[in-house]
Nucleic acid binder design. Structure first.
Length: 749
DNA sequence: GATAATCCGGTTTTT
DNA sequence: CCGGATTATC
């Protein structure tokens, strides 16, 4: 391959050649121009970091519209994050105006929901289905596992959910999934759990995130819906996909189906920036693209307009250590580019020293005129942020940590949302369960169990079961009264929906249910903040048309509204930094075990290591001007001092691009430490399998009790049926007296 | 049914 | 070491 830094032979198309008639094409380089103008047929754009991929995508979209090739609603443009979608719509809007509003542009999930809402009945859902978050998913799966008598300690719901999600990522429903993927997880019952979990979701009229794609896929694959599929295929004349290297198989199949008719699909991606394989993304989709779409045109964007030649050379040198790349070399886009400062690679004594050094350098940059917002500290894992935060606080340098707990993931927000969900969707059992005894109202496990039992027997949602159970004596008088009041409350709130402004309604609900009061009573220092968050929630809600619309927004767009424009150092994970750029980038913690993370290597071997290397590549290519890599010889992890070795990645940076500054002899005679540490991290808890207890037997089926029948009840003992009213029985118990009970709670004696 | 004691685990994360 | 989640105890 040619020397990527030889710039002499690069012809640059004079802007005048394309300007004039199509001004939106101004300023594109030849390869970008080709990607924009090749609108017909399959196109794969291999776009290196900083090569103007967003520009290409938005210009291409505008080009299709402005040349009249298609109407906005004939274009499907898919991104991975809401942020990317928003940005793209804005930028296209700047070129084409209001037409941008009508493009089918959004994340895979948002577009999936849009299709699914229209055709929900075709997959067994109702139009107003709920979208569950991770928390609800796990609780639901746990319930299913417990009902199946599976020991949820031996096999955690998380691990089972992991396998289920991987199936979903690959577009496999319970019928197509292969049991061997799960090994002996859950005693080999994982597929069965998957099926039951899916059934439960349908009865709850709910979906998880994976389902948003999976349901769309099965819907389109079902021969019964071939007319609908044909209609969609005809509608989407042009399809564009961003971050293609991050697609999973399900998303790939989805795209392939939709693109089948017009075959005008353009995927933009970079195999060197694929860092989400652990989430089901498959770089192989890039290879599949070439196979499935014959004569696909492949365009490489290699001119980087972001980083200095030195940084590019360092990043290229590093990533060259990966095997099986598609082959793509970044070269500086500007001929006049100064080579730039070398990458500083600094060894420090320990983590504290490292933080001190990083902040000193930050202050030096600041003195040199750099704005803090143009400085980023990019870490491998969340826990690494702490030391930098502490140091920044003591030195008084403003910073913000991006990522971490998001607004809608906060406990108080989720609690409040659960109330709204039960109001909007009485069948939302998971939400109902969450608020059943919250704030504490004296309804414990026993009461909940009774409601559950009844719900299961009568095949109704928990809320309906609660409504019915308070007509009986199943619960203690106290619980019965409390629950009856709760049911009344919800009925009243639902009655208010048509007449009351929903923001006001939300405030009313939180007030009347005692949730606000609960936090007001709380003396902990964060209670005040939680109350403020609740207020913020209510005002956010007012921006929406309806409660339902808001709930959908919340489940799909779980993001922080970050105030931009503040001059602060940014701390975030390397994953979070993908797609962003800064003048100065600090890459701390380059030690074996931390980065590459030992677990990535332990679990995925050479592949895992390569993904870690791509992550390093992502980190380096975020920087426009300067990169500071650092590592510490000693680090305290879980309060134990560990000695570590510099990351192998430091050695993979070409000598010509680095300035190595380590204290001499710092890494002397401890060759095996990193290894020992790695093994420590990798050790997997494994215990002797224990057979789970079989599921508790369910009482006799209902409907068989004539008056006079002798029956037995778990709580009230023996008695005789006096009267029957549907499912409800009046029973004269020998000891407990006359009670109203539900037939499914008693057995014939 | 609510609080104290103990045990376990502890990358990356969007939707 | 810290936080959460389940378990033990009142």
């Amino acid at each position: 391959m040619n020397d990527p830094f030889d710039l002499s032979d690069e012809p640059v198309l004079p802007p005048a050649q394309v300007g004039g008639a199509m001004p939106w094409l101004n300023g594109l380089n030849p390869e970008q121009l080709e990607a924009v103008q090749t609108t017909e047929g399959p196109v794969l754009v291999l776009s290196g970091a900083g090569t103007g991929k967003t520009r290409v995508l938005t210009t291409r979209l505008a080009h299709i519209l402005l040349t009249g090739k298609a109407k906005p609603w004939n274009i499907l443009a898919v991104t991975f994050t809401n942020k990317a979608a928003r940005e793209m719509r804005e930028r296209v809007g700047a070129l084409v105006g209001g037409a941008a509003e009508q493009i089918w542009l959004g994340t895979f999930h948002a577009l999936g929901v849009r299709l699914l809402r229209r055709h929900a009945p075709l997959v067994g859902l109702e139009t107003n289905f709920t979208i569950l978050d991770t928390d609800d998913q796990l609780r639901l799966l746990k319930q299913v596992m417990e009902a199946e008598g599976i020991d949820t300690k031996r096999w955690t719901p998380q691990s089972v959910m992991g396998v289920i999600q991987r199936w979903k990522d690959r577009g496999l429903g319970p019928d197509k999934a292969s049991g061997s993927d799960a090994g002996d997880l859950a005693g080999g019952k994982t597929i069965g759990l998957y099926r039951l979990y899916q059934e439960r979701l349908l009865t709850l009229n709910a979906c998880d995130f994976g389902d948003l794609l999976l349901h769309c896929l099965t819907l389109m694959q079902n021969p019964a819906n071939k007319d609908l599929l044909a209609e969609l295929q005809r509608q989407f004349r042009y399809i564009m996909v961003d971050e293609y290297q991050d697609t999973n198989v399900s998303q790939y199949l989805w795209l392939r189906l939709l693109a089948q008719h017009h075959r005008n699909i353009c995927c933009v991606g970079d195999d060197d920036q694929s860092v989400y394989s652990w989430r089901g993304a498959e770089v192989e989709n890039i290879l599949k693209f070439e196979r499935d779409f014959e004569n696909a045109k492949i365009i490489r964007l290699e001119a980087n307009y972001r980083s200095t030649p030195t940084i590019l050379k360092a990043a290229s040198g590093l990533i060259a250590n990966n095997a099986g790349r598609l082959g793509k070399t970044l070269r500086p886009g500007r001929k006049d580019a100064e080579s730039g400062a070398p990458i500083v690679v600094r060894g420090l004594w320990d983590g504290e020293d490292e933080a001190r050094w990083v902040v000193e350098e930050i202050e030096a940059l600041q003195r040199g005129g750099s704005s803090l917002a143009q400085i980023a500290i990019l870490v491998r894992a969340g826990f690494q942020t702490r030391e930098f935060e502490e140091r920044l606080v003591t030195t008084g340098v403003p910073y913000k940590v991006v990522g971490g707990l998001r607004f809608y993931e906060r406990q108080e927000i989720r609690d409040a949302l659960a109330y709204f969900r039960v109001v909007a969707q009485p069948a939302d059992d998971l939400a109902f369960e969450r608020i059943f005894n919250l704030p504490k109202r004296g309804l414990g496990d026993a009461s909940l169990q009774s409601v559950h039992l009844l719900a299961r027997h009568q095949g109704v949602p928990l809320f309906e079961a609660a409504r019915r159970i308070v007509l009986t004596d199943e619960l203690t008088p106290k619980a019965r009264g409390t629950l009856a009041r709760l049911v009344e409350d919800f009925d009243r709130w639902r009655g208010l929906v048509p007449n009351m402004d929903h923001g006001e309604l939300a405030a009313t609900i939180l007030d009347e249910c005692g949730y606000t009061a609960m936090w007001q009573k709380e003396k902990t220092p964060d209670a005040q903040g939680r109350l403020e968050n609740l207020k913020e929630l209510v005002s956010a809600l007012e921006e929406f048309e309806s409660l339902g619309g808001f709930l959908e927004h919340v489940s799909l767009v779980m993001e922080n509204d970050e105030q931009t424009g503040l001059d602060r150092v940014v701390i975030m994970t390397l994953h979070g930094a993908k797609g962003l750029e800064f003048d100065n980038v600090f890459l701390p913690g380059w030690e074996e075990g931390v980065f590459p993370h030992s677990r990535a290597v332990a679990e995925s071997g050479a592949k895992g290591l390569e993904e870690e290397r791509r992550l390093a590549y992502v980190g380096l290519t975020r920087a426009r001007k300067r990169v500071f890599v650092s590592y510490a010889a000693n680090r305290r992890i879980y309060n134990q001092w560990q000695t570590s070795l510099p990351s192998r990645f430091t050695a993979e940076l070409p000598e010509a691009t680095v300035d190595r500054l380590a204290e001499r002899g710092m890494f002397g005679g401890v060759p095996d430490q990193a290894n020992a540490w790695a093994q420590d991290w990798a050790s997997v808890t494994r215990g002797a399998p224990r057979r789970g207890d079989p599921a508790p037997a369910v009482a006799a089926p209902s409907g068989a009790f004539a008056p006079g029948t002798r029956v037995f009840h778990q709580k009230f003992g023996y008695g005789r049926v006096i009267a029957v009213d549907g499912n409800k029985l009046d029973v004269a118990f020998d000891k407990a007296g006359e009670k109203k009970v539900i037939d499914s709670f008693v057995q014939e004696a």
